[in-house]
Design a protein around this nucleic acid. Structure first.
Length: 493
RNA sequence: GGUCGGGUGGCCGAGCGGUUAGGCAGAGGUCUGCAAAACCUUGUACAGCGGUUCAAAUCCGCUUCCGACCUCCA
């Protein structure tokens, strides 16, 4: 915590020095998925971005309560039907079955991408009471009105009295009047087009509904995040995050609900991640420009020429800043795959290195500067691409030491230890990458050692026919033989 | 149409007043029985036009192209 963390705050549109409400503790709320179908890669990018943020805050020594919700009710489609109900109707399942099924899938993918689980993962349906309470408070404060069993947030009145509405998204309420879409359900019940439902009366055929003072119905989308963040992090907490497509209306309305119920700003810092593009276009569930994690891993998609491992994908995403759009292309993934391998190989090469200088050297100093630079990059609004660039400078040094372009006497014992610590802390703890090649242990290793050994004998006997046959045959089954200075190794192609 | 954010070398992608970003590809070299792999070295850039400045990819203006949001989205 001695470092100076700076974060970009969407609320003020500038980088700000980060200081938590309570020294040493951080409350962070991130909008999670609506579990009505499989996660797509765009979702994954957002959660990986916040995973790195979470990991870095932990690294800095903060005790972080990371809350990421699961929305399983209240999210309306264009025709007014609840997403969950629609999923249930199509699959002939209970709504809770749909939610469970896709929550499981979501967790599975998140773990494949090596993201840490949040501290609390609350569900909207588990917090109906809290949401009803919040509707009451908003009504009591005069920022909502009831119409036919539904309750709407009064954006005009709220904007007039508090001047708060539109701050986050840079929206002006007059513009909202003329631009609002008019095809939403119960639009005619609203006093003002920018008003939004915080409680909706359910129709008879609606499956997910609860009793309330106003009607048998369900909470509006936006409300669950306001209620749950308040419940678990308090009325005012440190960080609120989400994809930047949630800025409006979701986050704007969330702020309105929080301010409207308790009179205080929910979060001090708003962090928004940018979109994942594919071939230059926004990746989105609704317009078909999408690739699922499985398709990407297996290569079974028209968008990729082959499969890419989860860590290659994670590395690829870390190579761009979380606030920049990231364009996923086959070519870019191919480049990331090679770069990631180089990074992992260098890390492994470290094991064989021992510094020979008893004293601190010029190289030691240079390395310390690079490492400090990498941490400074993380301090600067979690700049992972820059931190990664610094690591590659170290990669070159490691390889030069290993291959003899640099002498081991140029570096001290502690210099090597420093590199090892920093590489591992940054790559694995902070960036959350994993060395996937370490999963190959078992009988295969022994078998390969035997084959390599036999080939080595043939080579010693200058039996090139046999040695080349072994090499070429293995190559055909996607195993690559690598003859190096200190012996032969192998890997999957 | 409104609001916001962008256009950086063959590709991806940082930087946002003076410094080598980095990765991939390309070129040269090292190693090797040959090859592959690996490693080292290295060229190439800031959409266009003006302006401010000793100095601009970085600030300002205009032009042009692209993207996001504007009540489905992470």
């Amino acid at each position: 915590m001695s470092r100076n963390l700076v974060v970009y705050n969407s609320l003020t549109r500038q980088k700000e020095k980060f200081s938590p409400i309570q020294e040493g503790f951080i409350g962070m709320y991130v909008c999670g998925p609506t579990v009505y179908n499989d996660v797509h890669l765009g979702n994954c990018r957002t959660f990986m971005s916040f995973d790195v943020i979470y990991r870095y805050l932990l690294y800095l020594g903060y005790k972080v309560r990371y809350v990421r919700n699961i929305t399983d009710v209240g999210h309306l489609l264009d025709d007014g039907e609840d997403r969950m109900s629609k999923g249930a109707r199509l699959d002939n399942l209970e709504p809770m079955e749909v939610a469970q099924k896709y929550s499981n899938g979501f967790h599975h993918i998140m773990s494949i991408f090596n993201t840490l689980p949040p501290s609390i993962e609350p569900r909207a349906t588990g917090h109906i009471l809290e949401q009803i309470e919040m509707v009451k408070e908003i009504l009591d404060n005069g920022y909502a009105y009831e119409k036919n069993g539904s309750v709407y947030f009064d954006t005009l009145k709220f904007a007039e009295k508090t001047g708060e509405y539109g701050k986050l998204s840079g929206r002006i309420i007059e513009d909202l009047i003329s631009e609002s879409r008019d095809n939403l359900k119960n639009q005619d019940e609203k006093n003002h087009p920018s008003d939004f439902a915080i409680w909706m009366k359910a129709s008879d055929e609606h499956i997910m509904k609860w009793n309330s003072p106003w009607s048998v119905g369900f909470p509006g989308w936006h409300l669950e995040c306001s209620a749950m963040s308040t419940k678990y992090l308090g009325k005012n907490f440190d960080i609120h995050g989400g994809g930047n497509d949630l800025k409006f209306p979701h986050h704007e309305n969330e702020i309105a609900q929080n301010v409207g119920s308790c009179g205080c700003q929910p979060a001090n810092y708003w962090i928004h991640t940018n979109m994942l593009l594919m071939n230059g276009k926004k990746m989105s569930k609704s317009d078909g420009n999408t690739i699922s994690p499985e398709e990407l891993f297996t290569g079974k998609s028209v968008h990729v020429s082959k499969g890419y491992s989860p860590m290659v994908v994670r590395f690829f995403m870390l190579q761009s800043h979380y606030r920049s759009p990231n364009d996923l292309t086959d070519e870019a993934l191919l480049a990331a795959e090679k770069g990631f391998k180089r990074l992992m190989d260098a890390n492994k090469n470290l094991d064989g290195l021992i510094g020979a200088s008893p004293l601190e050297t010029i190289l030691d100093t240079k390395i310390s500067e690079i490492i400090e630079g990498a941490y400074s990059d993380m301090d600067d609004d979690f700049n992972t691409p820059r931190a990664l660039a610094r690591l590659f400078e170290i990669v070159t040094i490691i390889n030069s030491l290993k291959d003899g372009q640099m002498s081991l006497s140029d570096i001290s014992v502690t210099g090597i230890t420093k590199i090892k610590d920093a590489m591992r802390t940054i790559i694995f703890d902070i960036l959350g990458l994993k060395d996937e090649s370490e999963n190959n242990a078992g009988p295969l290793d022994g078998l390969m050692n035997l084959i390599i050994d036999l080939r080595q004998q043939a080579r010693v006997n200058k039996d090139w026919g046999t040695s080349d046959k072994i090499r070429d045959s293995l190559n055909e089954i996607q195993i690559q033989i690598k003859d190096g200075k200190e012996g032969t190794s192998w890997s999957f192609k």
